[in-house]
Nucleic acid binder design. Sequence first.
DNA 1: TCTGGGGTCCTAGGACCC
DNA 2: TCTGGGGTCCTAGGACCC
Length: 415
Amino acid sequence: MQAFALIDCNNFFVSCERVFNPALEGKPVVVLSNNDGCIISRSNEAKALGIQMGDPFFKTKALIQAHQVAVFSANFALYGDMSHRVMETLQTITPDVDVYSIDEAFLTLCNNADLTEQGRNIRQRILKWTGIPVSVGIAPTKTLAKAAAEIAKKSAKAEGVVTLMSARLQEAALSRLPVADIWGVGRRLAPKLHAQHIQTALDLRQADARFIRKTYGLPLARTVSELRAEACYSLTLNPPPQQSIVHSRSFGMPMSTLSGLQQAVASYTGRAAAKLRHQRLAACYLTVGIRTNRFRVTEPQYANSITLELPMASNYTAELIDTAHRGLRQIFQHGYHYHKASVMLSGLVPMNERQVNLFALRDTERYDRLMSAMDRLNRVFGGNTIYLAAEGMQKPWRMKSSHRSHWSAIMPVKA
DNA sequence: TCTGGGGTCCTAGGACCC
DNA sequence: TCTGGGGTCCTAGGACCC
């Protein structure tokens, strides 16, 4: 029988910060999302304080200050780099690594040797070579391996590795796992399943396959099969090319005018176009969207988006901005407080020769500007500000937050 | 005051065709 | 009384993931 292993980095963003600042070990730590809006990574100590994934920062601020929780603005350039190191380490164990996300990868193990022992070895090597602690789940299907890793993360006696190869072990483990913890059961499906008296993962494994297929669709039917150790998914070793590139941000403050939105949309389009060129692609379609603040329920709400076809596949910023502005004029309505805009590029194709030449030209300019900006930063703050330069330097205090000798300056400085 | 951002896949229903 | 039946393509919306 095939044995899948899921390698899942523990509290990944927090663990990355700890690699560069070991004094954070054993202390509560959280990492915040882009605009410092939400909590997106928590150390075990922060979890124990009751801080939830996705909690708005401002709502937990009092708790955070009371317990002296260390707070970090997300540094995705750093996390991407650390992720790369983890994946490279896995490559030294087997060439066939299915990188599932920034902090997870699937691989298959040799079923002749002791699987749990192999899991332990992987764990030790990653910790030693990268400093990142991981959990390993081993099972006959990807979904069961995910569940096993989930249990490994929480169980002290598992020592980071759980193997679920036999039906007996699978049933025992799934009977104690809430159905909502299963990969493929999200916040919408979980209450619906509860209403059908499907509470645990074991209940789902034993549910009527045709009923599930008919009521909830193909994806959940596959999840049920996978829970029964019937593999529906294999390793994805040659991922298909990306289908879309998005750049979206919420604004710092509400925006009401078309010209204000135009500025934001132009800047987002520029970012999306840069990502496009970086991947040597061009786009056939552009979608622009705007919306009001969905949390302000007392205010009138408006959300709209429009997709435009480009006359020719393009990755040229000015052309894409023109298109985005044309779309924006069509969906803009007076009288609303806008809160967020997004630009999506789709219908992605490899860039042609003309586009490559334009790219080379602009890339040189960008590179020069980036280097001079980094040089200035390094002179002011010393080394290690490189990640920040890549992030775009949207807020002054962000610079300080990335500088390793200025940890005390990590909290936002109010104007 | 302050509530992230970037992705994928599936399905139902309408339009249209023969 | 009884009002085809496939097939395709497209789109919006819903669900999920990290």
